[in-house]
């Protein structure tokens, strides 16, 4: 009994340590976002004078609201397309026997490891030539590309967990290969697809390099890029308050995902990499 209580106390301390590790930097930004400009320079962890001014300010800023819309729209569209194409490919990899399967896996792996910066100059040129520069599709296309390996790996490992015999059973029950997929495999793959969709959306939401390289105005600039272009209204005014408030807003969707889908995110992140 005593050792048990000791162990619990030790684990409580460990948990607390982890919680501090995670939360302090986050709380600092939150605190900053509530600080009144006059107390900005006090270096205190907790605001001395609370205000909502910073939040009011950024929502009055059309660049930021436009950035949020861009982020949400581009993220959702890219996620949707990546999931559809990724599921198709993952199904083929997990279930079907065809020549070129290993090549496809190798190509996806290559893309997953690809340094994005290497694509900035050619994409910059190509998109300008095609009129895609500074448009939604101009960002959606590279996002899909870099999300595809993630979706293919994660989904194919999810799909592999579905027992093979179900597909054979469906065929014996009179299903075409497509019906076997759509009526038996797809519903079972749904949880894996939701998980993968969340991971993909987080990836798109997080991108910065493409967002600042392939845009030049608020037409397509996403929220993280918008934040980095914040300036004070005058040369001497520090935009820190607005940046902090915007940072908090951008973080809220992530917190919601994490709270509601913790288990799924963990299984999704680890399935592709370890189980194979």
């Amino acid at each position: 009994m005593r050792t048990d209580r000791g162990a619990r106390a030790r684990w409580l301390a460990v948990d607390l340590l982890v919680a501090l590790y995670v939360l302090i930097p986050v709380l600092w930004i939150v605190s900053l976002s509530f600080k009144h400009p006059s107390t900005f320079g006090d270096g205190s962890f907790i605001p001395r004078r609370w205000t909502l001014e910073n939040y009011a300010g950024i929502f009055d800023n059309p660049d930021f609201t436009r950035g949020l819309i861009n982020s949400i729209g581009i993220g959702l569209i890219a996620t949707l397309i990546a999931i559809v194409f990724g599921t198709m490919a993952a199904y083929a990899i997990a279930r079907l026997d065809f020549p070129g399967k290993n090549t496809l896996v190798a190509v996806s792996l290559l893309v997953a490891m690809f340094p994005q910066i290497s694509l900035v100059s050619p994409l910059f040129q190509i998109e300008r030539a095609l009129g895609l520069f500074d448009t939604w599709p101009g960002l959606i296309i590279p996002y899909i590309t870099f999300a595809l390996p993630l979706t293919i790996f994660t989904l194919s490992s999810f799909l592999r967990e579905i027992p093979w015999e179900l597909e054979q059973a469906a065929k014996m029950d009179g299903a075409t290969p497509f019906q076997a997929f759509w009526q038996v495999i797809a519903p079972l793959a749904m949880p894996g697809m939701v998980t993968t969709a969340i991971l993909t959306f987080i990836f798109c939401w997080n991108d910065f390099l493409f967002a600042i390289s392939l845009t030049s105005s608020n037409r397509a600039r996403t929220a993280p890029a918008t934040i980095s272009f914040f300036t004070g209204s005058t040369q001497f005014e520090d935009p820190a308050g607005s940046i902090a408030a915007a940072a908090v807003i951008v973080t809220i969707p992530i917190i919601i995902f994490v709270l509601f889908f913790q288990r799924r995110i963990v299984s999704g992140l680890t399935s592709g990499a370890v189980k194979g």
Partner: peptide
Amino acid sequence: RAPRDRDIAMIFQSYALYPH
């Protein structure tokens, strides 16, 4: 012929029931 065109039913060792 594909399985669906043979009009044969099969019972599997694992039963292969659709869980959903």
